[in-house]
């Protein structure tokens, strides 16, 4: 359950809208289902009062929306950013993708978001509504008369369980308490597990995962590091153009290229895995790069500071040799 309430956000939004600080508010609106929230712009207080939603399903990272939404608008946009969103926001500022003066950032503390697939695994399919109550999520399915209660702990998204930081690295104003970075989050546990496998086991694991890919491009479309004016996968001259590949092989290529493209820029927000309709753990690719970067070149967190030099556009004369990569791991 979020300690931040909808009222805290709507009253802040309305007052900033009314005093002219901002001309629009980026928030959440109900989608097809109550747990399926859509990021959306609000221009009026009425709209906010009626349609603004905030609950445990507000996982979407707003930073990427700001790249395009700030362009065609007079004045500032109010964006409610969770700690993890602020890292992506900073990274986009570093890459000059967002004009900072066009955004009014209200940092909101976050207690971890719920993952609908974890809930579904507990309650079964056919969820018709979910309400966030203090003692847990009340889940109503079309097959049951009584709602089932799922604890917040059981429902919490994987990426929130090993949340790297509850600290906002950028904001104009803060609602709720400021948190701390969490260096002991063990977010590389699964990566290390994979690394310990034999190459054959790893190949089998990834073939199993990546062969499910339907190339819907959702991971790319949601990724805040993927804001290219023209994506290489859409560009016939890039040598990597492919939109709807025919074999499982190309999914693999697609995901390697994509992971490499965002290496050093990925803030580990976990949106790729959240939106994947096939539940491929794509974040494990990004985290591998992050883990390698941390071990090879020293701790680096993309987005922690605006203007920091990403590891792939930097070097030291004493960097380890590609051949040493494996010696080092004692493999």
């Amino acid at each position: 359950m979020q300690r931040i309430t909808r009222e805290m956000l709507t009253s802040k939004a309305i007052s900033l809208l009314n005093d002219g600080t901002v001309s629009a508010v980026l928030g959440w609106r109900e989608g097809e289902f109550s747990y399926d929230l859509t990021p959306s712009l609000f221009y009026t207080a009425e709209d906010i009062e009626q349609n603004f939603v905030f609950n445990d399903f507000c996982g979407a990272n707003f930073s990427k929306y700001l790249v395009t939404k700030t362009l065609g608008i007079e004045g500032k946009i109010l964006a409610f950013l969770k700690p993890c969103d602020t890292y992506s926001f900073n990274q986009l500022l570093t890459e000059h993708r967002i004009d900072r003066s066009k955004v009014y950032v209200v940092g909101i503390s976050c207690d971890g978001m719920a993952d609908i697939s974890k809930i579904r695994a507990i309650t079964g399919d056919g969820i018709s509504s979910i309400s966030c109550e203090p003692d847990g999520l009340k889940v109503q399915t079309i097959y049951d008369d009584e709602p089932k209660t799922v604890s917040y702990e059981d429902a919490m998204a994987e990426r929130c369980i090993c949340c790297k930081s509850k600290k906002h690295v950028c904001y104009d104003e803060l609602i709720g308490e400021e948190g701390e970075e969490n260096p002991d989050c063990n977010r590389f546990g699964k990566v290390a597990e994979l690394e310990a496998m034999t190459p054959d086991e790893r190949f089998a694991f990834w073939r199993g995962e990546l062969s499910r890919c339907i190339r819907c491009n959702a991971c790319r479309d949601v990724c805040p590091a993927c804001t290219c004016e023209k994506c290489v996968f859409n560009n016939p001259n890039s040598g990597a153009e492919n939109k709807a590949p025919a074999t499982s092989f190309e999914e693999q290529m697609f995901h390697i290229i994509r992971a490499f493209h965002v290496a050093g820029r990925c803030t580990d927000c976990g949106e790729c895995s959240r939106v994947c309709p096939q539940h491929i753990p794509l974040h494990l690719l990004n985290r591998k790069f992050i883990k390698d970067i941390n071990t090879f070149y020293g701790e680096y967190q993309a987005g922690k500071e605006v203007g920091s030099r990403a590891p792939l556009v930097d070097y030291t004369t004493g960097d380890l040799e590609p051949g040493q990569v494996f010696e080092r791991e004692g493999m």
Binding site: W206, I256, L285, D292, F296, L312, D314, P322, V325
Partner: peptide, 15 residues
């Protein structure tokens, strides 16, 4: 050196 260290490590990770 950095690019290839990371790429080769990733390929190894994929098996």
């Amino acid at each position: 050196r950095r690019r290839m260290a990371l790429l080769f490590s990733m390929l190894d990770y994929l098996g």
